[in-house]
Simulated assay, not measured.
Amino acid sequence: MELAATFALWWAPVIVLAVLFRMVRISGLRPGWFLTAMAIYAIYMAAIMKGGALIPIDHYFEGLEWNWAGKIASIAATLVMFAVMAVATKAVSPESAGFTLRQKPGSVIPALAMIVLLAGSGIGLELLAADGKSMAPERLLYQATMPGLDEELFFRGLFLAVLGAAVPSGGVNLLGARITAAGLLVTLLFGLGHGVGIEDGKPFVSWIFIAVTGWFGFGLLWVRERTGSVLLPLLGHNLINFSGSFF
């Protein structure tokens, strides 16, 4: 029940905003695709939270403190969902999901500059928090690999493509990146997923976490749309998480 309630808390503002976008003609709204987006998000979250039980990594590496199995399960779920949808519909393809190594001409240097800005702001926030270094080998390895592989393949990859079919819009050009209604909704949900939940049966909201993860999510979205690929967002995401461990 708590998981279902948390899911509702995450999606309620997204639904409201999607309807508002449609009313003011910022975007369209396709209910079937919108329900599909909600379904793949539910599968993704279930894989992170429960799917690790199907992956016996703890039997081979005892004493793991991080959710390796859950992340591996969610990555596998994302790739399987992508494969199924790519066969079933033309709306989901390697190009629409950014599953390509090809970068748009002239996009790499601006994208790297944004990643440096994001990583620098992450280090600055860590210094402000002054919560000490976290340099355990397992943490460093995890932060250097799992966050980007998991969250970029899903949020700025498959999920962005599906939500783009659900709320189609022309978007606006922001310094060479086309920011669409779908991109804004993905960023909102990314922030809410890190800052809204239920604890001890009571809902909580952390505006700081929503703002911080929303900032990083939007920056990584910009890189994704500027380059046309999830490659640099993936690497940048891991760099942000990894570098923050040292401050």
Rank of each mutant, 00 (worst) to 15 (best):
F216L: 10
Q103N: 02
V172W: 10
I240M: 11
S27T: 06
I198G: 08
E95D: 15
I240K: 05
M81F: 04
K50Q: 14
I115P: 05
V14P: 03
L231F: 12
L101N: 07
K71V: 11
M85R: 03
V116N: 04
A181S: 13
M1T: 15
G120N: 04
H237F: 12
A8H: 10
I208V: 03
A73W: 12
R178T: 15
I109T: 14
D200A: 15
G170T: 01
N238S: 06
F21E: 04
G98D: 08
F190S: 00
V116A: 13
K71N: 15
A182V: 12
L184I: 10
T6A: 11
E62N: 13
S206I: 14
G236D: 05
F204E: 01
A211Y: 01
A88P: 02
S27N: 06
L79A: 06
I43A: 09
W68G: 03
E152A: 09
P31R: 09
K104M: 11
L79W: 11
A88T: 00
F204S: 03
L17S: 05
K50L: 13
V205P: 02
G132I: 00
A5W: 08
W207E: 09
N67V: 06
P94R: 04
I240R: 07
I210H: 03
F99G: 00
G236N: 02
A83M: 00
F61L: 15
G122Q: 09
G176Y: 12
Y60Q: 12
M146H: 13
S74K: 10
L117N: 00
A166E: 10
A113P: 02
T6Q: 11
H59C: 10
A88Y: 00
P147N: 11
E2F: 07
S134F: 05
G191C: 03
L17H: 02
P94H: 05
A47E: 07
P233R: 04
G51H: 09
L174K: 05
W11N: 02
A119S: 15
M114V: 15
T187V: 14
L35Y: 07
Q143R: 15
A39Q: 10
V212L: 09
L188S: 03
T145N: 11
M114Y: 08
I210T: 08
L185M: 08
L160I: 07
F218S: 00
M135D: 11
T180Y: 07
L127W: 06
T100C: 05
Q143V: 02
L101D: 06
S134Y: 06
L175I: 08
I208T: 12
